[in-house]
Amino acid sequence: MTLAADPRAVFTHVQPAARRPPANRASKTVSSGTLLISTITLLALLALWFVATQLGWATPLFLPSPAEVLTQFQAVALDGYADGTLLQHTLASLGRILVALGIGVVLGVPIGLLMGLNRWVRGTLSVPIGLYWGLPPLAYLPLLIIWLGIGESSKIVLLSLSTFAPICFSAQAGVRSVPVERINAALSLGATRLQLFTNIILPSALPEILTGLRIAVAAGLSCLVAAELIAARSGLGYMIMSAANFLSTDVVFVGLILIAVLAFLFAIGMRWLERKLVPWKGKI
């Protein structure tokens, strides 16, 4: 059934906006419909995986069966693999990315806001940040290892660099995108410069900052695993690399699935954060 075919659906669109916005209801039904389709797709993929291994389309070395992966999951979770249990590896990875996101926000938001407000700061900092942000992070990881060694600090610095730039640039863009009428309105209501910043500019920039955070999460996750593959003694990336060295494909799968789940949880968290902090996004 299309929306136009339902006279009530058409009617809700011409109702005064003072009521609950009709778009909300429409998008809710649409998203629950999408959720159903997505769930079916996920189940179909799992079924395909099961059938493919059951019928022997690929050897277990290339594609282990779901049952094997589940068994390995239990084994790794309880007995550990590559000097740590699954929980330890997961917490190591999670800790690194959370610390890096924290550093990215704590440094990136204020520096980005300053860049948006002041052209001297913008002119000075946009070149170095833009230059390193253009580099693939793994290209300068070897340099960081030479400088900082193979311990935690090189990985934390790498991840922080990858989360800092998108947060910083989006905070800057957020400041630059504040409508001039909104600023004029506040000034004619008697706002001081500080009040203008805290009451108008900062909240106006918040949606952009959260978009930057979303990009930072994605950039951080891909850097994290890659860095752990190259140089680490713990973490999901390290576990995958160790397992691959022994051709334990099932353990590789365990690691991959966990990273996927982690990324998915981050995405949900970001969406929750946006609903909580900027419920007005896209409304005005």
Binding site: E181, A185, S188, P203, K283
Partner: peptide, 27 residues
């Protein structure tokens, strides 16, 4: 600009994150 001159704009410049009453109370 100053608070002694109240401006009503053609485009609405209300703050989306504040309730109606807090928008009115902004000044």
């Amino acid at each position: 600009p100053g608070g002694d001159r109240g401006v009503v704009f053609q485009k609405d410049t209300l703050l989306p994150w504040a309730s109606v009453v807090d928008n009115v109370a902004l000044g």
